[in-house]
């Protein structure tokens, strides 16, 4: 079992719902302090977005954050250098698109990420069918691969994806890209599909923007992922204090 999964299973075993905020790496020069503030306020793991020019699975907020970060001149090397400065005791998980790693080299990317303290990777456009080479290399590096399961995924595929996932399995709460959402979503059905295949921790994300939505999602899964709502705050100039306040409000809602 990859170290990430051991840690996240321990969170679940302690009876705690996991809270996983998403940050866009390099959005501001002091972005690593934002990650630390979130952990201080009770995040159980942190998703670190690496900016890509063409984020197919992301809505306008994360698109804007990616372009802002890229305009600051960030790249995989500079982001990994920043990551080394982060001092937190919860796991860091990266999320980005496959071309970043494909271009940098798979083994070189995985080596670089794990050296920089990354324990898991979510690569939404790397389908299960195309993930073989990436998976094979990551196995010798303690990098956990996390797959998404969507409402459109059938039972058979959900089982395969749950079994292929390491660390946790990402339950997409709705048929949407990242960002604001007001509908109820399909998290219950997706989580049930994952649990039919594996007892891996299952976190619900996509469209969770309010503490109320987080609370509902946490009753369905083992944790929640909050991205765009937080990134919007950061785009609007939030500092560590605001971030702690935001994370605390979600923490209170799911505890």
């Amino acid at each position: 079992m990859k170290p990430l999964e051991t840690k996240l299973r321990a969170v679940r075993d302690s009876g705690r719902k996991a809270l996983v905020p998403y940050f866009m790496a390099g959005l501001t020069p002091d972005w690593t302090q934002h990650v630390e503030a979130a952990v201080h306020a009770g995040a159980d793991a942190v998703e670190i977005g690496i900016p890509f020019s063409d984020p197919m699975m992301d809505g306008v907020v994360i698109q804007e954050a990616a372009l802002t970060s890229l305009a600051r001149g960030t790249n995989l090397d500079s982001i990994c250098a920043d990551l080394a400065k982060i001092s937190v005791d919860v796991p860091l998980i990266t999320m980005t698109y496959f071309n970043i790693f494909h271009h940098y080299g798979l083994e070189r990317s995985i080596g670089k990420l794990t050296e920089s303290g990354i324990e898991g990777a979510i690569v939404p456009d790397l389908s299960l069918e195309e993930s073989g080479p990436w998976h094979e290399i990551s196995n010798s590096y303690d990098l956990a691969n996390i797959f998404l399961v969507a409402p459109s995924t059938n039972t058979e595929r959900a089982k395969l994806l749950a079994q292929a996932s390491e660390g946790f399995c990402y339950a997409s709460a709705r048929m949407a890209v990242t960002g604001k959402s007001s509908d109820e979503g399909d998290a219950a059905q997706v989580v049930a599909g994952i649990r039919a295949g594996s007892d891996i921790p299952t976190y619900v994300g996509i469209g969770i923007t309010t503490p109320k939505q987080a609370k509902d999602a946490s009753k369905i899964g083992d944790g929640v992922i909050v991205g765009s709502a937080l990134v919007q705050l950061l785009i609007d100039g939030a500092g560590p204090g605001k971030i702690e306040e935001f994370i605390t409000s979600f923490r209170l809602a799911i505890d």
Partner: peptide
């Protein structure tokens, strides 16, 4: 069967679109 022409092609899409 993987949709490849030599080394090119394939299916790199989010899971939400894979069933489609």
């Amino acid at each position: 069967e993987r949709g490849r022409f030599g080394e090119f092609g394939g299916r790199f899409v989010p899971e939400a679109l894979m069933p489609a």
